[in-house]
Write a protein that binds this DNA or RNA. Structure first.
Lengths: 329, 329
DNA sequence: TTGAAAGCGCTAACAT
DNA sequence: ATGTTAGCGCTTTCAA
């Protein structure tokens, strides 16, 4: 790869002039500009981002941290981030952390080292302390999962209210024995969704029974299958299930079928996220729809504003209950 | 962020010595090393990748190009890439191209500019010419989709044979009217899978009917739904369907159910990829399993070898037919 | 064992 | 309108 020196030499100008042409400075004469441009073409020259970044302390690269690309929930969010970033001449790089602190650290370093200009974190298991430290001097936005007391700006939904709506829907259909398939309550969203679940039950004077609350370690289909299997082994079986993720709900659906029960006739199921697949299951899945695209584009806008030292405010977006066959057969 | 100068000053040594400590040179005395190390700790110093890369022409970053993260097919491949990369002290960055040449170009530039050390491309729509040019001076590996005549090393499966196996399975179950839901035949894998489909039909003297071959533009569930709808409107309906992607097959399943037919009783369905979902559908999906993890880890190993100027050879891995309820109810 | 200094590719302040 | 040059943070050669 040719460098700026060679271009300058070939065009018979200084490197400064080449740089000016590269950056569209108005002070270059047309004649010179043309000469430089043709030299660039001839040498097939492309400026080095490395040199440029080192000089400018800017990379126009944004990092997006996700725990795992296996969860389709992130797909549409990333779409929103990507389109917004591109419209502002930024590019995004997806970083799968597997919720592994070591791996996270590498991406944090990329920002510290000016290899990227900012981070949108969607990893609920992210090391909050390290992230907060980093946020002191760098641009960080949390998306979906956030920290209530923390100082880092976020965009999310009202998980408590959404869960309340989901469970209320089940109650209004006549269900009195409603189970919860939750994930680990070390995550804020899990705690909030449980609160919403409990609020709805209390409001209708239904008992909260610990045995009807199952915690999974992950969000894979298999975790849903297993959770449902456990719930169905109880002496007093629930007549409805609210799962905090569509992937879990789909696993639950599978297991209910597997032992010969019918959805929603025997057991009604509500999920959370409205992933694409939730409409492909049989029966199709009632679920809470998060405004994923909007969440992504909002997060990206916030991050870019933050990089530009503009003020950003945390945002809570609206959710929606999507009623399908798994509750209204 | 402190830089190497400040560390040198604080430790009372030269920047060269700090650099030596950073890079574990043996020529530093223990006394000095300790002094430098404590200065590093005190200042919370971390070396700048930018400066280092500029000097070393190495980033230890690998780019993975995928058309869209929405297709779960890539999930397990990426897992394989990631684990292998990490075990060699490389990190990967996922780049979603949306099969958009402009976006691709940005990632190509990252490699040209030494911001990344190599690329694994899984985008079937990638600009082959540009990629081949880039491969002249840089490390590129193709994964899954490849170029038969091209010079770029690849890892893939034998799509023609896999499709042949899938269709043969349907024939052996007694099906005589077998439809194909294919994607755009500008992609090599689509052409190969069609060839396998035709070979199986010919072998059993079954007619190849153009109206039973449907081409989709994308690989979303909805494309499968639509394809199936079209096939079911034919006067002479197929009794079995082979879809070249599980996402398409799952959409087809949905549509077959929607008009009240049963799988596999009325119509049998075979997919391709063995994505996680394929075991969660009702009925579960018979499909061709690609060794996705292995494919990913092989691609990563090949890329790293290429970066190290070792010889790499293209590889074809084995597939497997996974028989489930959608053909053996 | 350590230090001084050049240089990776670029931009911008200053000079002309 | 254009050129000269310092310097971004680091590694490595050469010298001591």
């Amino acid at each position: 790869m040719a460098n700026i020196q060679e271009v300058a030499k070939k065009a018979g100008v200084s490197v400064a002039t080449v740089s000016r042409v590269l950056n569209n400075h108005s002070s270059v004469s047309t004649r010179t500009r043309l000469r430089v441009e043709s030299a660039i073409k001839e040498l097939n020259y492309e400026p080095s981002m490395l040199g440029r970044n080192l000089r400018n302390s800017e990379s126009r690269l944004l990092l997006v941290l996700i725990p795992s690309i296996a969860n389709p929930f992130y797909t549409e969010i990333i779409n929103g981030i990507q389109n917004t970033a591109i419209s502002h001449q930024y590019n995004i790089l997806l970083c799968e952390t597997d919720s592994n602190p070591k791996r996270e650290n590498i991406f944090f370093n990329m920002v510290k080292n000016k290899l990227a200009d900012g981070i949108i974190s969607m990893d609920p298991a992210v090391n909050k302390q390290k992230l907060t430290e980093l946020a002191d001097n760098h641009s960080i936005i949390l998306c979906s999962e956030y920290d209530e007391e923390g100082s880092i700006p976020y965009v999310s939904i009202d998980s408590e209210l959404a869960a309340y709506h989901a469970v209320k829907h089940l109650i209004q259909l006549g269900n009195k024995k409603i189970a919860l398939i939750n994930s680990d309550e070390k995550f804020l969203y899990a705690r909030q969704r449980r609160q919403g679940y409990e609020r709805a039950l209390k409001e209708y004077s239904l008992p909260i029974r610990e045995e009807w609350i199952y915690h999974t370690t992950q969000l894979d289909f298999q975790d849903g299958v297993h959770a449902m299997r456990m719930l169905l082994r109880l002496e007093e079986k629930p007549s409805a299930v609210f799962a905090v993720s569509d992937t879990l709900a789909i696993g639950a659906l599978k297991e209910i079928k597997a032992i010969g029960l019918r959805v929603p006739h025997d057991i009604a199921v509500v999920g959370f996220d409205n992933i694409g697949f939730s409409n492909m299951t049989n029966p199709s899945l009632t679920t809470i729809s998060q405004p994923m695209y909007k969440m992504g584009s909002t997060a990206a806008t916030m991050l870019i504003h933050h990089i530009q030292n503009r003020k950003v405010e945390s945002t809570i977006l609206d959710h929606e209950l999507i009623i399908r066959e798994s509750t209204m057969g």
